[in-house]
């Protein structure tokens, strides 16, 4: 555990809770991609199956349980409790174009050809692109609520901080995981455009709106 890893995890946790609170307090999931949230629920489920097979630490187990629980709670709020506010027409990204290639890649490129390991790899690859339906939705409507941008910023910072964590671990522990690093780089790059808009607009008190 190093400072980048810890702040990365906390940033991830903050993102998840910001989104849950936003939906709960406003009684609305307007502007939120339900498809991205389903993908994240799949990501956590596929990755944390090792909860059943191995114990690493109290921190590890509790964070995993919290992430999974919050992911399903978010999906429930969007598709059941506040379904009437869900903007399905604008959430039109074709997720099969992500899930199918990512599934194929996980079968082809993995550390060990075993069910748990392939599911772990699948979750790493899927996570790297799971935000695309959300970004697509924002580009389609041309705007995002400020609270939604805070969510996206925390979510983007999480994998960025993990990149620093991996540099740290490589130098001080000789540890590296090529699959996680490459996927983490892809994931971070996908946020770059958003980071730019967040710093130049949202942090200066303006709403995030894209030119028509």
């Amino acid at each position: 555990m190093n400072i980048f890893r810890l702040t990365g995890d906390l940033s991830h946790l903050a993102a998840i809770i910001i989104l849950l609170l936003k939906i709960w307090k406003s009684r609305s999931c307007a502007g939120i991609s339900g498809k991205s949230q389903i993908l994240f629920a799949i990501v956590f489920t596929a990755r944390y199956l090792d909860l059943l097979t191995s114990f690493i630490s109290v921190y590890n187990t509790s964070m995993k349980v919290i992430y999974i629980g919050c992911a399903y709670a978010t999906v429930y709020l969007i598709y059941a409790k506040f379904r009437a506010t869900y903007d399905g027409n604008h959430d039109s990204f074709r997720v099969e174009f992500l899930v199918v290639p990512v599934g194929g890649l996980a079968v082809l490129i993995n550390h060990t050809f075993s069910p748990l390991e392939i599911l772990w790899t699948f979750s790493i690859y899927l996570e790297s692109v799971a935000i695309l339906p959300q970004l697509f939705m924002i580009s389609k409507t041309g705007e995002a609520e400020t609270i939604t941008t805070h969510y996206l910023f925390c979510l983007g910072m999480y994998r960025t901080l993990y990149l620093f964590n991996w540099v740290w671990r490589f130098y001080f522990e000789g540890f590296f995981d090529m699959i996680a690093i490459v996927a983490g780089l892809v994931q971070t790059v996908l946020y770059c455009d958003f980071f730019y808009l967040y710093v130049t607009k949202v942090l200066k008190g303006k709403k995030l709106s894209l030119p028509a």
Binding site: N60, Y67, H111, Y162, I179
Partner: peptide, 10 residues
């Protein structure tokens, strides 16, 4: 070329 024995990360 990989060291994937540790799955302690989230």
């Amino acid at each position: 070329l990989t060291n994937n024995t540790s799955k302690d990360e989230l």
